[in-house]
């Protein structure tokens, strides 16, 4: 399958990418690693008139220790997140989850910014950044702004990024305490049928779910129950509360709700107090 014809423009700075988006509007799509966009283009589910390749923009691939948080450049590949000594020590949940994305070939190309900006509820990293309470940094014509992860995912494959904005950085709080990433699927390289990212530190808990709605979502009922002192078993029983999981070939909504309850319990047990 070959994508529909498009015009290819390569940019070398974020400013140029922003300028291209300003000029082209909805006709353009940004290409980073291409592992979300190109499969959609080959299936003709996406037919952008212009592809703006930001893959060679300098200075957007980094992992920086900033004391109480870690800053990650949007073009940092999953592989580089996976093996980053800073992330392994300060945010092991993110380093481990990155090692579970797709397969090695995918991780050699896919980027953290691309995965988040794609906004796929079935992707692993959006839920991880939600559970961690991360922040996304977007750059547009008016400069940079920060968007809390909790406000970033607005609909199916939709985010709070404005049409002229480029996601440039992801910030996550240092979270060296208990954590767990659970991914249930039938084939090694597949998307999660349901996934869970959990962090626990000093009595507070972040729990987010993969593929349990039209966006990556927090397990709010579980988080609130834990905050008011519920047991792990009781809190996990609320994992699917208020959610509307999708139905597909792999699972019915009921099965997904069941998986969420089981996987959240496992995640909380593994993450510990």
């Amino acid at each position: 399958m070959i994508p529909a014809a498009f015009e290819y423009r390569r940019v070398h700075t974020v400013e140029d990418a922003v300028a291209q988006l300003g000029e082209l509007g909805d006709d353009a799509k940004l290409l980073a690693g291409g592992h979300s966009l190109l499969p959609l283009m080959r299936l003709r589910l996406a037919t952008p008139a212009v592809v703006v390749d930001i893959g060679r923009v300098e200075g957007l691939s980094y992992v920086r220790d900033e004391g109480d948080q870690v800053a990650i450049g949007a073009l940092t590949r999953h592989r580089d997140v996976e093996i980053s000594p800073v992330l392994r020590e300060m945010v092991p949940l993110l380093a481990h989850a990155a090692s579970q994305v797709g397969d090695p070939q995918v991780r050699h190309r896919g980027t953290i910014g691309g995965s988040l900006a794609h906004g796929d509820p079935a992707s692993d990293l959006p839920a991880v950044v939600l559970a961690l309470g991360g922040t996304l940094v977007a750059q547009g014509p008016g400069g940079r702004r920060e968007i809390p992860a909790g406000e970033f995912f607005t609909g199916f494959l939709e985010t709070a990024l404005e049409p002229g904005e480029v996601l440039v950085e992801v910030r996550v709080p240092a979270s060296p305490g208990g954590w767990s990433f659970q991914k249930f699927n039938r084939r090694a390289q597949d998307w999660a049928i349901v996934g869970v990212a959990a962090v626990r530190r000093n009595g507070s808990s972040g729990v987010a779910l993969v593929n349990m709605g039209s966006t990556p979502v927090r397990a709010r009922a579980t988080e609130e129950a834990l905050a008011s002192g519920a047991s792990v078993a009781d809190a996990a029983a609320l994992a699917a509360e208020g959610l509307d999981p999708p139905a597909d070939l792999n699972a019915s909504p009921e099965f997904r709700a069941h998986l969420a309850r089981v996987l959240v319990r496992r995640a909380l047990e593994e993450a510990g107090g």
């Binding site: 290819y8 592992h35 397969d103 070939q105 995918v106």
Partner: peptide
Amino acid sequence: TSSCGACTVLLDGESVKSCTLLAAQ
């Protein structure tokens, strides 16, 4: 569909799926 890996080649020494990369990249 980027799944099977039959098209795997090395790009700068690392495995990639050549069906999920533009020649331009």
